[in-house]
């Protein structure tokens, strides 16, 4: 290939790691299939009861700081997954809707382009990864994220006396001045991949890895898996006619797919 063509390919690969382009360097985007995995989550809003078990599980699994009442009042709570509540209509005909909001692991993530030090990047699993050690705290990723799911450590985290004993050893504790967000429990994914490798298998099987929120959801509203595997539960559920993605018009290509709530009383 000519120098220019080669340069263009390299440039494209640099711009969008994991994308595959045509052999003839036509620049046509094929798919995200170059990723090893494409971890995806579907959230069935018909099943979600808004119980916030996922929020608690996430807090415990990922050593998320408990900010305390004062910081909470200032709007500095940390919830990698949060339940958004929306009221529709006026009392007495008010309806309450829930939507769990977490990092959408966008394939075209705005936060990744803005970080000046590449502390947030797309890894080979199609995950939007955050390198805490590299973060310098510009907080621009949080501004660029339309889902508002990035949380900043305004202070050093403190756990009251016995709580510090129950920190998850697989997850680092973040210091002040660092941005953090949902990782799809990357420590569990890593572990599952290691097991798969130890077993001499090539790939992680469906259902072998579950983030804490998925594991804990009593209504099984959350399904997690690899959408590259057409047989996986997540692949099947994401083809549901109710499937949609939040703020899809922004072209962020989220990896979290919501299944619309069916309203019996509608229309």
């Amino acid at each position: 290939m000519s120098l220019v063509g080669d340069f263009l390919t390299r440039w494209r690969a640099y711009r969008k790691p994991g994308y595959i382009y045509g052999d003839e360097f036509d620049g046509a985007r094929r798919d995200y299939d170059e990723f090893d995995y494409a971890w995806t989550m579907t959230i069935d809003l018909d099943r979600c009861t808004g119980c916030e078990a996922c929020v608690t599980a996430c807090q415990a699994e990922n050593n998320i700081p408990i900010v305390g009442a004062t910081a909470f009042a200032k709007g500095r709570q940390m919830q990698w997954i949060r339940i958004e509540r929306y009221w529709e209509g006026e009392y007495p005909n008010a309806k309450l809707g829930f939507i769990p909001m977490l990092c959408q692991h966008c394939d075209a993530a705005p936060c990744e382009t803005v970080c000046p030090v590449s502390a947030t990047y797309h890894n080979q699993d199609g995950l939007n990864a955050q390198v805490y050690n590299r973060c310098i705290g510009t907080r621009s990723c949080a501004v660029y994220c339309p889902y508002e799911v990035r949380y900043f450590n305004y202070n050093n985290p403190v756990w009251d006396a016995p709580l510090a004993e129950q920190l998850n050893p697989d997850v680092t504790v973040r210091e002040k001045g660092v941005m953090e967000k949902c990782t799809f429990c990357i420590q569990r994914i890593r572990q599952a991949k290691d097991h798969a490798k130890d077993d001499g298998r090539r790939r992680v099987r469906d259902g072998e890895v579950q983030p804490a929120c998925v594991q804990t959801c009593p209504a099984e509203a959350l399904i997690f898996g690899d959408r590259k595997d057409p047989e996986s539960r997540v692949s099947i559920s994401m083809n549901d006619p109710r499937a949609y993605r939040v703020l899809e018009e922004l072209n962020t290509d989220p990896s979290v797919i919501y299944l619309k709530k069916v309203d019996d009383n509608a229309g």
């Binding site: 910081a71 200032k74 709007g75 500095r76 709570q77 705290g137 907080r139 621009s140 949080a142 501004v143 508002e148 949380y151 900043f152 450590n153 305004y154 202070n155 050093n156 002040k176 001045g177």
Partner: peptide, 15 residues
């Protein structure tokens, strides 16, 4: 020393 918590910035308004 204290962290950016000394400023008034919060969750949606990080700047």
């Amino acid at each position: 020393n204290y962290g950016l918590g000394a400023a008034g910035v919060n969750h949606p308004s990080v700047w």
